[in-house]
């Protein structure tokens, strides 16, 4: 079935089977930052944005996206570089397999709550599992990133 959609700002006309999930479509197109992790909509490593919202690409049928916009990590290179550097500075990218999904979630967090509390950071990122880092260092990295970007202080609970 033919689907017209935008991926990372570029227009694509794709002929996909009706049961193809977005994760598969994106990987077939070479967007390798999007990864399979759990097959049960739980782990978050396949997180991308659809129309600006973080979603699991394993849980979206591609044919449903006719006329929609998809963003993967490849589409936000500058942010990936910036946020990624903070993760690397803390050493919490570790195996790196879940990093792209995590960064997509951090971007969504930033969009929803630009100056989040720790609790809000954890809330927005709870759907991104990681077995390597122990999470604690990721929180340090994200806080440093947000502090550098938005300035320290003026954190408010919402």
């Amino acid at each position: 079935m033919v689907v017209n959609l935008k991926i990372n700002g570029r227009h694509y006309t794709l002929d996909v089977p009706p049961d193809e999930i977005l994760l598969t479509t994106l990987r077939n197109l070479g967007f390798n930052s999007v990864r399979q992790g759990c097959d049960t909509s739980t782990c978050g490593v396949c997180t991308v944005h659809v129309d600006g919202k973080a979603v699991l690409s394993c849980t979206v049928l591609t044919c449903r996206l006719d006329g929609h916009e998809v963003t993967t990590l490849e589409g936000v290179e500058e942010a990936a570089e910036t946020i990624g550097r903070f993760l690397v500075e803390e050493g919490v990218e570790q195996c790196g397999y879940c990093s792209p999904g995590l960064i997509m979630s951090i971007l969504y967090l930033e969009k929803c709550v630009p100056q989040p509390t720790d609790e809000q950071i954890l809330h927005y990122l709870n759907g991104n599992l990681c077995r390597c880092s122990g999470y604690e260092g990721q929180l340090r990295a994200i806080k440093k990133y947000l502090e550098v970007k938005y300035g320290a202080g003026s954190k408010q609970a919402i």
Partner: peptide
């Protein structure tokens, strides 16, 4: 010394470096 992982930036930028990324289609 706390050096960054030398492959770290490639990993966080989602580069095609893992097994399935490298497999011929």
């Amino acid at each position: 010394k706390p050096f960054n992982k030398i492959d770290g930036m490639s990993l966080v930028k989602g580069k095609p470096l893992y097994t399935d990324d490298l497999c011929p289609p």
